[in-house]
């Protein structure tokens, strides 16, 4: 009996690899299989022999079941491999990418500058593009026939209504609306218009960003402090600036801010006309007449204002030579901004 079991085990194991797995299982391990048949023959054995053979038979069953499981796992894995081979694709082919889309460079610059000033605690203000002479000029210390109006040739719609030539009328409007509230800390992005023929550096429409602070005890050194930090955030931590005296009717003292040339770092190049400096914005202490036009007491309050051209900063930042590029909207140019992360 024992020998019979051993022979059965060896036969089964030797046939395992070449048989259909399920047929093999039925033949040897099934309810009517060989092992069961052998076990049924145990009835003829003596009471002493029966447990010994029974134990032996169970061992054989365990060996066969284990062999079956191993063989099944081997076959399954082979099947899976075959299936994956059949399903193999070229992973180097491009995916179904959707169009990327991109923000316009001028909007990108505006957003960055807004964010810098919001970080400084400034509120972003808007104002109308179609303005009254009063806010665009008169409230800003530019009475009618002031020669400085020549600096800004104006598109008029009527004698009194015009397209604003700068974002500064929003200063006048904000002061008038919020007087006598303090502090005023605003930043104003927006489109402005000048009656200039379009060329590489002029555009009849362009964008400005303006900042205004009015409060007790505001000093020109505070203006410089803000500008130093602004230049660092916009152009990099080691960005140097300088202020030069200038003139704007709505500020006194007035200044022009230069940054150390971002291309040659001061050695001199064509962008900075060999000076090592690039003019970037105008600023100054709010002129007493402007404060007074807004209803504030220029004797006890001071303020500063900053104004810059968005296109100029975009041209410098992205090395665009011609301002008209921003308004042509050639998607081959605009798409390049899709991959710019800030």
């Amino acid at each position: 009996m024992k020998d019979k079991l051993l022979a059965l085990r060896d036969e089964a194991l030797s046939r395992l690899e070449h048989s259909d797995l399920e047929a093999w299982r039925v033949e040897y391990l099934g309810k009517k299989g060989e092992l069961a048949t052998v076990l049924r023959g145990m009835a003829t054995l003596s009471a002493e022999e029966r447990p010994v053979v029974g134990q032996y038979a169970n061992q054989v069953r365990a060996v066969l079941e284990e062999a079956f499981a191993a063989r099944k796992a081997e076959l399954d894995s082979h099947q899976a491999t075959l299936r994956e081979q059949a399903e193999t694709i070229d992973v180097t082919l491009a995916g179904r990418i959707s169009y990327l889309g991109a923000e316009h460079p001028l909007r990108k610059v505006i957003r960055r500058i807004e964010d810098i000033f919001v970080g400084f605690g400034f509120t972003v203000e808007d104002g109308p593009e179609v303005e009254l002479d009063r806010y665009n000029f008169e409230a800003l210390n530019l009475p009618k026939d002031h020669p400085a109006r020549d600096m800004q040739d104006t598109f008029y719609l009527t004698d009194e209504i015009l397209l604003r030539t700068h974002t500064s009328p929003v200063q006048a409007r904000t002061l008038e609306r919020r007087c006598p509230e303090t502090p005023i800390r605003i930043v104003v992005p927006g489109r402005v218009y000048r009656r200039d023929d379009d060329d590489a550096t002029h555009s009849h429409a362009f964008m400005q960003i303006e900042a205004l602070v009015v409060d007790h005890g505001i000093r020109m050194s505070d203006l410089k402090g803000i500008l130093v930090q602004f230049a660092r955030e916009l152009f990099g931590a080691d960005q140097e600036i300088r202020l030069r005296p200038s003139f704007f009717p709505f500020t006194e003292p007035s200044a022009e801010m230069d940054i150390r040339c971002i291309y040659c770092h001061g050695d001199g190049c064509s962008t900075c006309k060999q000076t090592g400096w690039i003019e970037i914005l105008g600023c100054g202490m709010v002129h007493p007449h402007v404060l007074e036009a807004g209803g504030y007491d220029a004797g006890s309050l001071t303020g500063f204002a900053i104004g810059m051209g968005v296109e100029r900063i975009a041209m410098l930042s992205y090395q665009v030579e011609d301002i008209r590029q921003f308004y042509l909207n050639d998607v081959r140019l605009l798409e390049q901004f899709a991959t710019l992360t800030r």
Binding site: E125, D126, I218, M220, D222, R244
Partner: peptide, 28 residues
Amino acid sequence: IEEIARLVGYDHIPATMIVGPLTGGELS
């Protein structure tokens, strides 16, 4: 005052921080 600053030199102006209440910057 501008003449004074001009002749003393704008580079003489220090960089300071605004003194005043904190304001939270925001978009409309």
